[in-house]
Computed example of a mutant assay.
Amino acid sequence: MSEFSAEDLYRRLGRLIEEAPPFGGVAPLTTDQLTWIGRAEALVERGGDIGAKAEFGAAKLSLALPSTRAMGHQTMMMAIHKVLAAAELASPAGAQGAFIPVGSPFDAYSAVAKIFAAAASDILVVDPYMDDTMLLDFAGAVSDHVALRLLSDQQSAKASLGPAAAKWWTQYPHRKIQVRLAAARTLHDRAILVDGKGAWTVTQSFKDLAKRSPAEIVRGDDIAALKVAAYEQIWNSAEVVI
C-alpha cells in the first residue's frame, strides 16, 4: 500500500471532518456512520500517533452504546484533530491553513487572504452563489495593483453583488474590479485563479465559508492549466455587470 505524504494526509483528514455524519440518537449505527468510522480509523493509523490511535479505539467502542455515544464522539473527534494538526505542521507552508474549522471566520479570511496576497497581477474568483460578502469580507486583502475579477452565475448570483461592486468602484476607482455573470447553470464549482496559472478549489460558497460546517481550500497544481483555460473561456462570454 502506497504511503501518504503529510499534505495528502492533512487534506484527507480535513475532508473527513467536513463529511462527518451526526452521531446523536439511540438507534444502532448506520452504514454511513460505520463507513465513516472505518475511513477515520484508517487515516488516524496513517498518522502514526500511538496515543491518538489508542484514544480513537476507545472512543469507537463508546459509540456502540447510546449512553456513552456523545462522549465517545467527542473523544474521537479530538483524536482526529490531533492527527490533523500534526499533519498540517508537517505539510509544506503553502498547504497549511487549507482546512477551515466550522465557526472560524478569521481563519476563513486568513486562508483566502494568503492566496490573494500571492497574486502579482490578476485574481479571478468563481462562485455561482456569490453575494456582497466577497467585497465586504475578502476583497480588502487584494493589493491595489492587482485586478480582481468576480465571476458568478446569472441564475444563482445574489442581488447584492452588483450594487456592492458598483459602490466599491465608486469608492476605490484606482482599484481594478470587474464583475460578470455566466450563462445560467454554467458554473458548478467555487475557485480562485491567480495570475493565470495558480488554481484553488473552495468547497463552499464564500458567503457561507465555514459558517455552518468545516470548509477546505485545495490547491490543484495538476489541473490548474485546465481550470484556468475553462474559466477564462466562460469569462470571455459572460455578461458584464461592471
Results as ranks from 00 to 15, higher is better:
188 H>T: 11
128 P>I: 00
228 V>P: 08
182 A>L: 07
59 A>H: 04
148 L>A: 09
239 E>C: 01
158 K>S: 08
34 L>M: 07
93 A>F: 06
112 V>S: 05
35 T>F: 13
113 A>T: 01
80 I>M: 10
50 I>S: 14
32 D>N: 12
164 A>V: 01
75 T>M: 10
234 I>E: 07
69 R>M: 13
46 R>Q: 14
176 K>A: 15
203 T>E: 13
174 H>A: 15
210 A>W: 04
63 L>I: 13
200 W>S: 15
187 L>S: 14
18 E>G: 08
182 A>V: 02
105 P>G: 07
153 D>W: 00
211 K>I: 02
61 L>P: 01
92 P>C: 01
61 L>V: 10
29 L>H: 09
184 A>H: 01
230 A>C: 12
214 P>T: 09
47 G>V: 13
105 P>R: 05
174 H>V: 08
55 E>K: 11
208 D>M: 08
99 F>Q: 12
130 M>H: 03
229 A>Q: 12
16 L>T: 06
10 Y>C: 15
192 I>D: 02
115 I>D: 04
27 A>E: 13
118 A>Y: 00
202 V>A: 08
15 R>K: 14
185 R>I: 02
139 A>H: 03
52 A>F: 00
50 I>L: 15
231 Y>G: 04
99 F>G: 04
40 A>D: 07
50 I>W: 01
151 L>I: 01
122 D>P: 02
216 E>P: 03
